[in-house]
């Protein structure tokens, strides 16, 4: 039950994009088309889950025993950057079509603050290993959900008569704001 609450809360209530406002860059940048938004979401979920669990291991097996908690941000960034590198090479070898689909998004994930945010929050919330795994998975799927909804709206917006001054980034940010308001409705869920 506890795990379900963590999952739902990361997925909907404390959605990383629409509640914490983390990972806005890919959220705005890669939400032009539905299929690429979905790939991006899956890539983020994948990297987020691995990065959070490995970061958890590094933190509790290395940093805490040696009293080096102050190094968490530096070491987490190291973990994320290295992981993305390995994941990229792995996907390139194993599944070229997936590599083509993800394209530049994979390296972009390295600098996605939502990933670092998840890793830091698991430490802050003192989650154990399983909870961390579930939390990261929920957060990643929450990101996917948000970016896919956003892409769906933006594809429709292409046909809308947007005032000249609001075209492009302006209407996108307004849409994101309204979407965030809508997600506030989940706050009474658990």
């Amino acid at each position: 039950m506890e795990l379900l609450v963590i999952f739902i809360s990361a997925l909907l209530i404390n959605n990383f994009v629409l509640h914490y406002f983390l990972g806005i860059c890919p959220f705005i940048g890669v939400s032009n088309r539905l299929d690429s938004a979905f790939s991006m979401g899956l890539a983020v979920t994948f990297v987020m889950t691995i990065a959070a669990t490995v970061s958890w291991l590094i933190y509790y097996l290395l940093l805490v025993p040696y009293h080096l908690e102050f190094l968490e941000i530096v070491s987490f960034i190291l973990v994320i950057a290295s992981l993305v590198q390995v994941v990229e090479m792995f996907i390139k070898k194993v599944s070229p079509p997936l590599y083509q689909a993800l394209g530049i998004y994979l390296p972009l994930i390295t600098t996605n603050c939502a990933i670092l945010g998840v890793a830091l929050l698991t430490v802050l919330k003192k989650y154990n290993f399983i909870e961390t795994l579930i939390f990261a998975l929920g957060a990643g799927l929450g990101f996917t959900l948000a970016i896919v909804i956003m892409a769906g709206i933006r594809e429709e917006l292409e046909f809308a008569d947007v005032p000249e001054t609001l075209k492009g980034a302006g209407i996108t940010l307004i849409t994101a704001g309204i979407l965030a308001l809508a997600f506030m409705g989940f706050s009474g869920l658990v």
């Binding site: 590094i58 290395l62 940093l63 040696y66 080096l68 190094l71 530096v74 070491s75 190291l78 973990v79 290295s82 590198q85 390995v86 090479m89 792995f90």
Partner: peptide, 16 residues
């Protein structure tokens, strides 16, 4: 510690 972690990741990346 950081040197060791970086070294390990470096080795993993070059192996990969």
């Amino acid at each position: 510690v950081m040197g060791a972690v970086a070294l390990v990741f470096g080795i993993i990346i070059s192996l990969a």
